[in-house]
Design a protein around this nucleic acid. Sequence first.
DNA 1: GGGCCCGCAGGG
DNA 2: CCCTGCGGGCCC
Length: 740
Amino acid sequence: MAHVSDLPCDGDGICMVCKGKPSPDETLTCKTCATPWHVACLSSRPPTMADAVQWECPDCSLLAGAEPPPAIAAGAGASCDLLAAIRAIETDDSLTELEKAKRRQELLSGGARASEGEDRKEKGNGVLDILDGSLNCSFCMQLPERPVTTPCGHNFCLKCFQKWIGQGKRTCANCRHEIPVKMASQPRINSALVIAIRMAKMSKSNNESAQAKVHYFIHNQNRPDKAFTTERAKKAGKANACCGKIFVTVPPDHFGPILADNDPERNQGVLVGETWEDRMECRQWGVHLPHVAGIAGQSTHGAQSVALSGGYQDDEDHGEWFLYTGSGGRDLTGNKRTNKEQCKDQTFEKYNEALRVSCKKGYPVRVVRSHKEKRSAYAPETGVRYDGIYRVEKCWRKVGIQGRVVCRYLFVRCDNEPAPWTSDDHGDRPRPLPIVKELKGVKDVTERKEHPSWDYDAENGCWMWKKPPPKSRKHFNWGMEDGKGLRGSRKRSHKSVREKLLKEFSCQICRNVMNLPLTTPCAHNFCKDCLEGAFAGQSFIRQRTCEGRRTLRAQKNIMKCPSCSIDISDFLQNAQVNRELMGVIESLQRRALEEEEEEEDDDDEENTESGEEAEGTLNNLENDAEDVENDDAEDEVSGETEILLKPEAETEKQEACKQKAENPGNCISDLIQSDAADAELQVDVNNQEDAEDEEVNMAVAESNAMQFRKRKNCNEVVSPVKLDAGVATKSKRAKMAAAN
DNA sequence: GGGCCCGCAGGG
DNA sequence: CCCTGCGGGCCC
C-alpha cells in the first residue's frame, strides 16, 4: 500500500520522520485515531482546508482499506468494528466536538462508560502531578491499567496494547520499534509497574486508608519465580526446596475460585484444567497451599482446598463426586514420615475438623488431583491439575480398609466451568446426592443443616456465594520467610515508602533499588548494568545439557532471564531502559527522602516520645480501617507484618465487586452496604466487564491459557533452581543483616 | 516401584 | 515452639 514510509509524531510530539518538533500549525490530527502527524513529512497531504478537518491518517485509511493483510485478518474484525464505532461518533450531529472527542477517547481506551471515564480521569490527574504524565499510556493518555512494557521501554494499558496488536500493528506506538512476536501474542503485565502506580497513588494521597489498600497487591515479589533451595537444604532440586513466588493476590485462607482480579500475572484467574508440574507449583498459583498435606484449612475456620494424591487407600473417585479420607492416625515419628499404615483412629480435629466446618457451612472447596493418584481414572497423567469447586455434602467416621476408624467426606462438584474430563460446554448443575453404600450403620454422620454459602442460583444459572464468604483471618505476609522481614517497619508509617522501594523495585541481581530499570519481554525488571554485566561475566549462562551435564555456556549466545529462564538474547541486544518506571522510582525516592526529612524534624521536636508516636500511628490506622479484627491489631503492634492492615470492609467490597463482575444481575454484593463509594474498585469492575465483552481479549486470554498449559506440561531443559537459590539466600542474608 | 531421608510450611 | 503433613529426589 501507499504510505508505508509515513510516520506520525511520537508521544512527545516529535515527528518520527524528520525528528523535529512541529508547531501545532504544522501538525494534522487524524479524525479517527486523533494521532498528530507532521504535515511537511506526509507523502500525501490533504488538498484543501476542508479536507484537512476530515483528514484520516495513513494508518487508519490503511485499515479502512477493503483487504487487510492475511496475517491480521483475525484481529481485523475487531479493529473494523472500532473504526465503524469511531465513524459513527464522528457523524453524530447531536454531539459537540468536545463530546465527540471524549467518546472517541473512551472507545480507544477500552470502552469505559462516560461517567466512569470521568472518575478515572480525576483519579489519574491526581497522580499525574507527581508523575508528570510521563507514565501515561500513549493510546488512552491515562495511567496504564494492567500495564505492559515493550522491550523498547514503553508502557501501555494491556487492553490498549491488545487493541493495537489486534489492528495488526507490530511496532511500538511510541517509537515504532518492532514488538517481538512473543510479546504481541502473550503480553505480560509488568507487576512492578502495577505496584509502582499504586505506590505513587498512595504516596501522593499520603492517606493512611489508601496505604491500607495497597498491601493487597503486594505479595512476595522478592521470591524467585521458581522453587529454590536454601543453603541448609541438603538435596538439590525441589526435594527440599522452598517454594517460589506466589503469583496470585488471594489471602492464604481464600475460599472459592481464584478470579482474574487476583491474578495480576495473567489476568485470567486459575482456570479449571490448569496443570502444574508438582505441588510446589500448584501452591504458587494459590490453589492448594500446603505442599505436603492433603487438606488446607483451619479447624475453627473451614477448609479451602484438598488434594487427591492417592495417599489413602479408602479414597474413591467418581469424577463429579468422590469420597475423601481425613488425615492423621499414622505414626510419622522418626524416619517414618511416609508411613502409610494407620495405627490410630482418626477424629474430627485439626484438618479433619476444618473440612467438617466447610461441610456444615457449605463452603466451596477447591480440588486438585495429582498424577500420584493411580487408582482413579480422573487423575491427570502427569503433574497436579485443578479440577474446580466441590462441596462437602456429608461427613462421617467409619472403620477403614486398614481396620482403623477414618474420617470420610462426600465431595460433590459444583463449578461453573466444566470438569476437565467432560465434553460438556457448561459447568455443573445441582444434582441429587449419590448413593453411598458405606453410609449404612456408620457413626458421627454430619450433614449440613443451614443453607450453603456457595450454591446454585437458578436465576443467574450459575454457582455463586449466596452468603458472604468467610472473612480472611490472615495477613498477606508472603514473601517474608520468617514473617519478620520488616520488623519494626510499622512503627513509622512513612518509612514504608523507602522500604517498599527496596522491596518492590529491587533488581533481582544486585538487590538494590533498580538503577536504569530494564523490563524484559517476560515482564521481569533488572538494573540495566546488572543484567548486561551478568551476561558479560557469564554468571547466568550455567545450564544443563540434554544429557544432564552441567556446563557453562552450553549454547553460545543464549541468554536467559535470571528470573524465569526465558531466552532474552534478542531483547538484550537492543534493550531500552523503562524510563517511565525509572520516573516512578525516582519520584518515590524523592518522596521517601522528603518523608525521612519530615521524620527527622519530628524527631527533633518530640525526640523522647518515639515509642508513643508508634502507638499513635497504629491507633490512627486502626481507626481508619473499619472492622479490623483484634489479631490484626496485635500483629501490627508486634510489627511482624508489613503494610498488611486490610480493613475487612475492603475484603467484602472486593469480593462484592468480583461477584458483581461475574454475575451483574443479582448477587450478594447488593446486600453489602458500602459507604464511601470506591472509585478504584469501580474501575476494576468496569475493566472486568469490558474484558468479558471484548472478543479480542477473550481470544487472547484463551490463547494464553492454552500456551500456559502447554508450557506447564513440557519439561524445561534448564533448571534455574540452583541459580535462584543463590539469589534467594543472598536476599535472606541481606534481610537478616538488616534485621540485626 | 518401594523405601529412606530430608527440609519446608502451617496449624495450634 | 513443636508437631504434623496425600512431597520430591535418590538409592536400591
